[in-house]
């Protein structure tokens, strides 16, 4: 018997922000098992003194995968089995769409990761997706659907997708989405948002995301209009107008060392303008505004001296006197991790065992105005990075060799990730950031995932322990996996029949949400 290679032992933090002295949190990253144990038990496990662990606790820890008789190779085989199920069934079930109506933008933000596209000239930049290309994209989606795939969401992206001169193009895309019951998300700078409110209300938009970089002139300097016009007041007025029309808005506040004061200044300004009070009223059913969410994120800037990282943003929030709960609601990465851990603690689903971090690996169609397909949002505009194109004459998708590489940039294959306890929580990390750090899209990128996970898990589990005294906090994949026969494992890994694999997976109870 030994401690699993995917085991994490974390402190428990109580509501008073102090460590709970007599308990520790065990997390098995491979099976998604979260268990609270006496501190002395955790000490025995760390020292390998398994015989001193209480018998009933021993059985519980073995059943849930924290301690195991499996070799490392057998644990990796479990990882590969789960990744294979995800790749064959779950990922394959859905096609998401990301459309860039144009590369053009009315802003010239100094840190924009698409700045390189400006070198290609005004004519190339100003191209707007044609009616024929839009028809071809949706014909390709219809082909996917006719072959069994489900259609996911459509995200409008740019350039700037909501420039008022492109109203007709956005309407045509939205009409096509509505006909196929696809929900729409849009990432916009918000400058022309008011012009699009009628379209957003008419079609199934689920939210609008608008970023800010500070108050007033700070924002105007960093979110710079290409003609030098002020942007802050107009963006906030547009956001308020959208909310009044019942449209949900995610406001992301970019933070770097250059605009640290924006944390307090923007929060104060949002309060002064009534955004936060009106959101509280909405939650109590006292108005019909759209949902307003705001959160802080480390600006992805090429200036490494200015880059804070997600951990840096969380640290700044804490040092400004904000609580751990506030950080887990309003910090981008910490919030994502905290919401996910809380979901697991509801015990109605296993850990998400996909090893693909984002649409680049999961096979979404990211189409530029010329019909080229790209793997990653940050690779657009660089034709060398294209993985295929939409054939305008046939209405179908054609892939090149690079597509195969991206499909398998997953955490069951990246060497550093295969034996990492955070595998199913960070999934290999962002490929674009890996390129920044290592010059290689196909390396791992850990970023601040480990810190975010430890922070959120310790706080959420600690609070639950104090409130409920519950020790077994989540479901564990170790249990259904233990019931698979050798033949069933072989069939999952080798059968060419997706229905046969699905039948085994369903019988084993690995997908309780279906």
């Amino acid at each position: 018997m030994r401690l699993s290679n995917y085991e994490m032992i974390l402190p428990l933090i109580g509501a008073d922000e102090k460590e709970i002295d007599d308990r520790a949190l065990l997390v098995n990253g491979l099976y998604g098992a979260f268990d609270i144990v006496p501190k002395r038990c955790a000490d025995f496990l760390i020292k390998g003194k398994f015989s001193q662990v209480d018998s009933s606790l021993w059985e519980q820890l073995a059943r849930r995968g924290h301690i195991t008789t499996k070799s490392l190779e057998e644990e990796i085989a479990d990882l590969e089995l789960l990744a294979h199920i995800d790749r064959r069934i779950i990922q394959k079930s859905r096609i998401d769409l990301i459309i860039m109506p144009t590369y053009d933008c009315n802003f010239r933000c100094p840190y924009c990761f698409e700045r390189k596209r400006l070198a290609r000239g005004e004519t190339w930049l100003a191209k707007v997706m044609s009616h024929e290309m839009i028809q071809a994209i949706f014909a390709a989606l219809d082909d996917y659907r006719s072959r069994g795939y489900g259609l996911g969401n459509c995200t409008l992206y740019g350039g700037e997708p909501l420039m008022k001169e492109n109203l007709a193009t956005v309407r045509e895309i939205a009409e096509n989405c509505a006909q196929r019951e696809m929900k729409i998300e849009v990432l916009t700078n918000g400058y022309d948002l008011a012009s699009f409110i009628p379209i957003i209300k008419e079609f199934p938009f689920v939210f609008v995301q608008v970023p800010l970089d500070g108050v007033g002139k700070t924002n105007d300097r960093l979110r710079r209009h290409k003609e030098g016009k002020d942007t802050y007041e107009r963006i906030l007025n547009n956001v308020d107008m959208a909310l009044e029309h019942g449209i949900g808005v995610n406001m992301r506040i970019n933070i770097s060392k250059e605009n640290l004061s924006s944390i307090d200044e923007l929060t104060d300004d949002l309060k002064r303008r009534g955004f936060l009070a009106k959101e509280n009223e909405r939650r109590m059913g006292q108005n019909q505004r759209g949902e307003f969410v705001h959160y802080f994120k480390a600006t992805v800037t090429p200036d490494r001296n200015s880059f804070l990282g997600e951990g840096g943003v969380a640290r700044e929030l804490l040092e400004s006197g904000r609580s751990a709960e506030y950080v887990m609601e309003h910090s981008c990465l910490y919030g994502i991790v905290a919401r996910y851990i809380r979901k697991l603690f509801q015990k109605d689903t296993y850990v998400d065992f996909s090893t693909a971090i984002c649409n680049a690996e999961r096979g979404a169609l990211l189409v530029d105005p010329y019909g080229l397909l790209f793997p990653c949002w940050e690779s657009v505009g660089d034709d060398d990075m294209a993985v295929g194109r939409v054939d305008e004459t046939q209405g179908r998708v054609l892939w090149n060799f690079a597509k195969a590489k991206w499909r398998l940039r997953t955490s069951d294959r990246i060497p550093a990730c295969r034996i990492c306890p955070y595998n199913f929580f960070c999934k290999g990390g962002c490929a674009a950031r890996a390129k920044d750090v290592y010059g290689d899209y196909f390396r791992e990128y850990c970023g601040d995932h480990k810190q975010a996970f430890a922070f959120a898990a310790s706080h959420i589990a600690g609070k639950m322990w104090q409130e409920r005294g519950e020790a077994e906090l989540s479901l564990s994949l170790a249990e259904p996996l233990a019931h698979l026969t050798r033949k069933e494992r072989y069939m999952i890994m080798n059968s060419k029949s997706i229905p046969d694999v699905f039948a085994i997976v369903k019988k084993a109870g690995l997908l309780p949400q279906i």
Partner: peptide
């Protein structure tokens, strides 16, 4: 690699289940 080449062909395969029923899991 052989696995990557197989993944390329998998892009063109039909999905033999009802994707609309499974897509919310993904």
């Amino acid at each position: 690699t052989e696995d990557e080449a197989k993944a390329y062909f998998a892009e063109m395969e039909d999905f033999e289940l009802d994707g609309d029923k499974l897509k919310d899991v993904a």
